[in-house]
Design a protein around this nucleic acid. Structure first.
Lengths: 245, 245
DNA sequence: ACAAAAGTGTTTACAGTACACCCATGC
DNA sequence: GCATGGGTGTACTGTAAACACTTTTGT
């Protein structure tokens, strides 16, 4: 099996997390320092991406690259777009960077975007050679290449998918309160929801299982915890979130 | 400007039409005949696709290729997937074909799928060098490459999109009856809908404008015709189809 | 005792569902 | 005059939306 990289195809992962306050995204720091001095010439950020190997399929590559850069495995991943504009790598600093890391800056590269969802608290980011960290989606640093476009597409895709599937739960811990679930929707759709109506609607969903457990060490009335049961979801009528917002 | 083709990136258009009975898709005939005799060795079909040019963006290429093969312009097009499995062109007849048309059959090619929607009656297919024709989506001939996968993805994507946007109207003529609209939903979702309830729900939508016009030359009571107003849709509350099905 | 978030119920209006018959036209 | 699809109304049930106060815990 060859491990040659394909110079024309890359993947980028837009990995989202939710810290009960904000939607966050994982970014990799990109520091370009001249070969002669260590003074950085510029610093910005990229999504979690790289070129695929010749023997890999796209999602396989996305999972490998994510694991290599962050240690993260087995998360929800879904393809959402391919970008290939001829000028997408042609900004000056991107050209310098590509040259620096030994890529041909004139290569036409298509990139395929995957969005990933995970429970931000259960994941330890195991930093490798590059610094990877969480940024609030509405307070982003400068991004390389066309990664701002990529991210905007990912957010839109996340919004649509959350209305027609149960992926919302992959952003929460196994045990969560209804308020946390509500905040998740409020943050992603930028609205405020009525607490009583939200709870009424949610409690109807049979796959939302109340646990014999409450929050602890909170300085207010501790919340009832719930879990999502995929099993129950599969065998029941799959009520969804279409009318939540 | 260079017109070199990019050997690694292709696009495929899954163009849907609705003839008031079935969902149909445009396919291109692929006839391989030996260089020495004219007897065809195999015949099958492909989606409407080709490689992009080096200077083109993806959608631009999709529109060009669609126009070249069918004469069709200015239709609704939307990207829905990228496929790049290493073995996707490795079936024997595909390899033979690639060689035949002068492509390197060992090239890794990523293809980006666009689905297109149009009013089947308003479009004249201007056949070029290749034969292009409509096939019912649930009665397909053998397809080349991974085009069956592609098409399945496109159908799923169409179903999702039809629930959260107004693209359904791009499959209908400008003037249409409520029964035609209902049949469209029934065909795509494989259900039967109650006529009275469907009409009640639809007539609520302010962007569905009744015209001073009825069907003619039909051997039954002629139907009231309606049009879709994008303008009204944009300025009103954008009620949609989420609960139609 | 106070701060902080959890939790709860009722009313009203609108939308969903189920269901059967008459109507206008071409032939 | 008959075949074909167009067009209509009602009763019942269920969900959406608006809205304010009490409860439980930590400090």
């Amino acid at each position: 099996m060859s491990f040659r990289i394909n110079p024309n195809i890359s993947v980028d992962c837009v990995v989202f997390g939710f810290d009960f306050r904000q939607l966050k995204v994982l970014l990799v720091e990109r520091i370009f320092q001249s070969d002669y001095s260590l003074k950085p010439i510029f610093t910005d950020h990229t999504l979690i991406g790289n070129h695929i190997y010749e023997h890999e399929d796209l999602e396989e590559a996305a999972r490998r690259i994510l694991k290599d850069l962050t240690g993260i495995e087995n998360i929800y991943l879904e393809q959402f777009i391919a970008l290939a504009h001829p000028e997408r790598l042609k900004k000056e600093r991107d050209q310098i960077w590509l040259q620096h890391i030994g890529h041909n800056p004139h290569n036409r590269v298509i990139t395929v975007g995957y969005f990933g969802l995970l429970d931000i608290n259960a994941m330890e980011i195991r930093a490798g050679s590059r610094k990877v960290s969480w940024f609030p989606v509405n307070k982003l640093p400068a991004l390389a290449f066309d990664h701002h476009d990529m991210l905007n597409h990912a957010v839109e895709c996340l919004k649509t998918r959350m209305r027609v599937s149960t992926i919302a739960y992959t952003l929460l811990p196994k045990k969560f309160s209804l308020s946390q679930l509500q905040t998740l929707f409020e943050v992603i759709y930028g609205t405020n929801l009525d607490k009583r109506n939200f709870r009424k609607k949610m409690i109807r969903m049979k796959y939302l299982i109340p646990l014999n457990e409450k929050q602890s060490n909170v300085s207010h009335k501790p919340a009832q915890l719930y879990m999502f049961s995929r099993e129950v979801y599969e065998i029941t009528n799959r009520d969804l979130f279409e009318n939540i917002i």
